[in-house]
């Protein structure tokens, strides 16, 4: 679907996600991953989400991708297709690379014809050669990462959700994929980029959201948001290293 630049694609209002971890039959351990997050995503922009580890950034991506639904608040998607970049985590180890591309693409809603149209580009880009018809168990970690990256790169959902991974595979491919991804972020592709690396957000994003302890603390110009975030981290260091 063609979106007009600046049109609202997804709107999240006061969302909260509470995981109810069952430790035994009678004990529930409630844990709020998100408490009160509001944000909007507009067509063509790249939105950076900063925050320390464990503040619910990944949970937010899952909500945006409609993988989970919030316990409170509302999420409206105005018809945009979404996909997480780290597709390789869902790959089937005993299937071939080619089948994995097909299965992933089907779940992202592509028809067989559309997949056929792109499959050679994906295979070429992943630099897998003859390995593409081998089961994934024989792949190196780098090969897997390359395949995962290429699938998402070529399938182009309306909204691309990127979780901390601006590079995959060996050094050579990491540079190639990082460059490709940066080009994509700078282009008209709508992107939500989650990162604890403030620099990446400052350099690549048009807008940024800072989440702390499951609450949106600030939204706006990436430089300003990142500065506020960094100052906060300096003043409130936490035992956990923000890796």
């Amino acid at each position: 679907m063609a979106w007009e630049h600046g049109q609202c694609l997804i709107r999240a209002q006061n969302i909260a996600v509470i995981y109810n971890r069952a430790t035994s039959l009678f004990r529930r351990d409630p844990f709020s991953a998100l408490k009160d997050v509001s944000m909007e995503l507009y067509a063509g922009e790249s939105l950076g989400v900063v925050g320390r580890n464990g503040v619910g950034k990944t949970t937010l991506l899952k909500v945006l991708a409609d993988i989970i639904r919030p316990d409170r608040g509302t999420v409206e998607n105005f018809g945009a297709t979404t996909a997480m970049l780290s597709m390789q985590a869902g790959f089937d180890q005993f299937a071939t690379g080619r089948t994995n591309i097909l299965l992933s693409a089907l779940l992202l809603g592509y028809s067989e014809d559309e997949i056929k149209e792109h499959i050679n580009d994906i295979i070429d880009y992943a630099e897998l050669g003859d390995f593409i018809d081998q089961p994934l168990v024989g792949y190196s970690a780098g090969m897997r990462a390359r395949l995962g990256f290429s699938v998402c790169y070529f399938l182009e959902p309306d909204v691309l959700l990127i979780d901390e991974a601006l590079g995959a595979g060996d050094i050579e491919f990491r540079r190639k994929s990082a460059e490709a991804m940066q080009a994509k972020i700078r282009s008209d592709q709508t992107v939500v980029l989650v990162s604890h690396e403030a620099n990446t957000i400052r350099e690549l994003c048009d807008r940024a959201v800072w989440i702390e302890e499951g609450v949106t603390r600030m939204t706006g110009d990436p430089a300003a948001v990142v500065e506020a975030y960094e100052n906060f981290v300096k003043v409130n260091p936490r035992g956990k290293p923000s890796v």
């Binding site: 993988i67 985590a89 779940l107």
Partner: peptide, 8 residues
């Protein structure tokens, strides 16, 4: 793992 990456 698959479910946490894409809606199925």
């Amino acid at each position: 793992r698959l479910m946490s990456q894409v809606y199925v």
